[in-house]
């Protein structure tokens, strides 16, 4: 057998194998193909791709699939905002219903200077860990522990710990809700970004008890509820609670609060901002 013959046979055999495999793949591609709606990919492209999980699904592609296949609401993507809603609405020919922009808010105002500690804690700097040691070192059993579990889980670094108290920067918040889930004391809530008034306290303890532990805790005096007529602020076990579904009044309630635990929206942002700038300058 000469060299040429050997090369021909070899390349012929390889070519044959190639043709057989190629045909098999072509047949398989035709008969076993999984049909996927091409719109899913397009919708996923419109979504921001942050995979934050704020919509309640495992990521942007999953949410796109839910929109296209299951007909899920198109206004669940908080980071995308109205722009994304409009684009998806235009692409799928659905009606655009704008979602209210929500932001996370820590319902506690007691930082290290205002709230008492009941014991020294020298362990792992994490709220869940601190909470597991005798229910946390803060005297108030409802308040923010300030060990920053929320700040570490936040995908966009919108939570800052100032003086032992977590603060959400509303302009950075993408309302994914990760902090709400991780907080062992359940004091982070999603609130409408444009709500004019908040009660920065979660303590259901009675007035005298609160007074001993925290200078800015709600003492349940009910003064604020008398400033509003539509029951936008109600009392729940010695704690004033804002009903965000109702139109809430402006500064009247905040000004009346004897312990300053009610803040009007303007205050909260101006309160937090200078601290950030200070930190950056240092």
């Amino acid at each position: 057998m000469d060299m040429l013959q050997f090369i021909l046979i070899t390349s012929g055999a390889i070519a044959l194998v190639g043709v057989v495999c190629g045909t098999a793949l072509a047949v398989a591609a035709r008969f076993f193909a999984v049909h996927e709606d091409p719109r899913i990919e397009k919708v996923a492209e419109i979504l921001p791709g942050a995979n934050c999980g704020g919509c309640g699904l495992a990521g942007c592609t999953e949410y796109a699939r839910a929109i296209v296949v299951d007909g899920a609401a198109i206004n669940l993507c908080a980071p995308g905002g109205n722009e994304v809603i409009e684009q998806i609405a235009a692409f799928l020919g659905r009606e655009a219903t704008a979602a209210k922009k929500m932001v996370a808010l820590v319902l506690c105002g007691g930082n290290d200077t205002q709230a008492q500690k009941r014991h020294a804690y020298n362990g792992v700097a994490d709220c869940t860990a601190a909470q597991a040691v005798n229910g946390g070192d803060k005297a108030c059993t409802y308040g923010c522990l300030g060990y920053g579990s929320c700040s570490r889980i936040c995908p966009v670094a919108a939570i800052e710990i100032c003086d032992g108290l977590a603060k959400v920067h509303p302009e950075l918040c993408i309302s994914c809700g990760a902090c709400v889930k991780v907080c062992p004391r359940n004091i982070i809530k999603m609130v409408p970004a444009d709500a004019p008034v908040h009660v920065l306290c979660s303590s259901h303890d009675k007035g005298p008890v609160v007074k001993k532990m925290c200078k800015v805790g709600c003492i349940g005096c009910t003064l604020c509820t008398k400033q509003v007529e539509n029951q936008a602020i109600t009392m729940d076990r010695f704690l004033a609670v804002v009903d965000y579904s109702k139109e809430t009044p402006g500064k009247a309630a905040a000004e009346k609060c004897p312990v300053n635990c009610i803040i009007a929206a303007d205050d909260s942002s101006s309160d937090a901002q200078p601290e950030v700038l200070q930190n950056e300058n240092n």
Partner: peptide, 13 residues
């Protein structure tokens, strides 16, 4: 190091 506390937290998670 607060090793036991780490373990407790890990177990809880």
């Amino acid at each position: 190091r607060p090793l036991v506390q780490h373990m407790r937290q890990g177990k809880a998670r």
